[in-house]
Simulated scan of single mutants.
Amino acid sequence: MVTTYSISDLAREFDLTPRAMRFYEDMGLLQPARSGPGGRQRVYSGRDRTRLKLTLRAKRLGLSLQDAKALIDMYDSPRDTGAQLQRFMQVLAGHRSQLEAQLAELQATLNEITEHEQEARALLDKLQSQSPKRRSPARKKNPG
C-alpha cells in the first residue's frame, strides 16, 4: 500500500501552515493528487513529502525557492547524476560567495561599531576625569 498524506499531516510534521503548503504547490515544488468532490482535497505522495523536506533544507541553506525547485527537479529527471551534482555545486558556490560577502560587510560594520565605542569611551573617561569631584554632603550635627 502506498502511503499518502493530507495537507494537515505534512503541515504538522514540518511545522508549516496549510497556506505555506499551498504556496509551495503554486511554486511547482509540490504536485499533490486531487480527490473528493470537485478535486478539492489534496493528497500528497511520498515523493511530495521528500520534495518538501528538500525544499525546507534548501531554505535553511539560504537558497531561493527557484534555485531549490531547479535542483529538486533535476533529481526528478532522468539526466546524468554528474551534471546534477555539478549544478548543485555551482549553486552552492554562488550562495557561499554571497554569504561570504555579507559576512565581510557585517564584520566591517562590527569593526566600525567597535571603533566608535572606543572613541566614545575615551571621551567619556576624559570628561569624567576633568569634572570636579563631588563633595559628599555635609553631615548635620545632632544638637545634643
Results as ranks from 00 to 15, higher is better:
Thr4Gln: 07
Thr4Tyr: 08
Thr4Asp: 01
Thr4Ala: 05
Tyr5Asn: 03
Tyr5His: 13
Tyr5Met: 01
Ser6Phe: 02
Ala11Met: 05
Ala11Ile: 04
Arg12Tyr: 07
Glu13Arg: 10
Leu16Tyr: 07
Thr17Leu: 02
Pro18Ala: 12
Pro18Gly: 06
Arg19Ala: 12
Arg19Ser: 13
Met21Asn: 09
Arg22Glu: 07
Phe23Gln: 13
Asp26Gln: 14
Leu29Trp: 03
Gln31Asp: 07
Ala33Cys: 04
Arg34Asp: 11
Arg34Met: 10
Gly36Gln: 09
Gly38Pro: 07
Gly39Met: 02
Arg42Met: 06
Val43Tyr: 02
Tyr44Gly: 01
Ser45Arg: 03
Asp48Pro: 08
Thr50Arg: 14
Thr50Lys: 10
Arg51Pro: 02
Arg51Ile: 00
Arg60Asp: 15
Arg60Glu: 15
Leu61Gln: 07
Gly62Leu: 12
Ser64Glu: 11
Leu71Glu: 10
Leu71Tyr: 07
Leu71Asp: 02
Ile72Phe: 01
Asp73Met: 06
Met74Cys: 14
Asp76Phe: 09
Asp76His: 08
Ser77Ala: 15
Asp80Gln: 09
Gln84Asp: 05
Gln84Ile: 06
Gln84Lys: 13
Leu85Tyr: 08
Leu85Asp: 02
Arg87Ser: 09
Phe88Val: 08
Phe88Ala: 15
Ala93Arg: 07
Gly94Leu: 03
Glu100Leu: 14
Glu100Asp: 15
Glu100Gly: 00
Ala101Leu: 14
Gln102Thr: 08
Leu103Gly: 09
Leu103Lys: 15
Leu103Glu: 10
Ala104His: 13
Ala108Val: 02
Ala108Trp: 01
Ala108Glu: 13
Leu110Lys: 12
Glu112Val: 00
Gln118Lys: 13
Ala120Asn: 09
Leu124Lys: 10
Asp125Ile: 03
Leu127Lys: 10
Gln128Val: 10
Arg134Phe: 01
Ser136Tyr: 09
Lys141Thr: 08
Pro143Asn: 10
Pro143Phe: 03
Gly144Asp: 12
Gly144Trp: 07
